[in-house]
Nucleic acid binder design. Structure first.
Lengths: 146, 146
DNA sequence: GGTTCTGGTTGTATAGTACAACTTAAAGAT
DNA sequence: ATCTTTAAGTTGTACTATACAACCAGAACC
């Protein structure tokens, strides 16, 4: 009967374990780009550019954190800032060609690592796992905010 | 047809996003106990005590990191060290009564948070999600090591 | 009994993060 | 229209988790 509780327990434990390992794993996988940097770059690509504030909101980071991350990425020549057309305070961030290239490289590494790790899963399982994760994250993102 | 690739892409993205948020979420959930501390305490409880080295090995942490974490937990009165019976260098770590209590409290908070977040999932989905996570983590833990 | 290994601590450095104070510009209120 | 409040970003400061290297003490192995 408390199958439900057992499942919750497992989900909690495994997600936690995963989170603990993720940073180190990312560092092993691509030393040039931390997990945060990677995430921010990926978001910029996906969105085709956005403001620092949007990044902060989306990833639950402080503006100062994003500001420094972006500054670092800019120093590396991976990100550029353009004045926002409608708001003189804001800047629209976007990838440089080099940024896109680096991101593609790292993404490929990551993809390969995942592909290898999940190589023996069948397609239907992958699909369902992906759907579950998406659902989990979406529910997590929406409510707790304020 | 590269459904498979799409799923992999989603899994990668969502796991990454989750990892990024986990620390902050944990901090909101229980400011007294960081995610690492929580993890270490939970492991001690689960194992009924173990050495610092075991923790380091299990969580892919440096000994120095564990040493400092444990020192902090000891200062908080949540963990005690006992001389290891057979090895004079080693110490067996275990929870104090207060540590067990704190852990239980935090674990309950976490459980509630997860229960709320996943409240509208049906049992079969929870079960499958848990199984997928477990499978993922197990495959991740084993091979890449060295 | 010396060499090597293992458990643990301490020194030092770095990255990621938050919070608070500040600047500048936009938006709202009167 | 000005005055106040809000929003976007930056910078100062501090803390935490982490690693790596150097070290010490006990164990294990010749």
């Amino acid at each position: 009967m408390p199958d439900r509780d057992a499942s919750l327990e497992t989900i909690q434990r495994e997600l936690t374990a995963f989170a603990r390992r993720a940073r180190a794993a990312a560092a092993r996988l691509h030393p040039e780009l931390s997990l945060v940097s990677y995430t921010l770059l990926a978001h910029l690509e996906e969105q085709g550019g956005c403001r620092a504030t949007d990044l902060a909101a989306h990833y639950l980071l402080d503006k100062s954190t994003v500001s420094r991350q972006i500054a670092a990425l800019e120093r590396l020549g991976l990100v550029e800032r353009l004045p926002a057309p409608e708001d003189q305070r804001a800047q629209v961030l976007h990838l440089t060609a080099r940024g896109a290239e680096t991101l593609a490289q790292v993404a490929a590494n990551r993809r390969d690592a995942f592909r290898e790790r999940l190589g023996d899963w069948d397609g239907a399982d992958l699909d369902r796992f992906a759907a579950y994760l998406l659902r989990y994250n979406t529910s997590a993102r929406m409510p707790g905010r304020r």
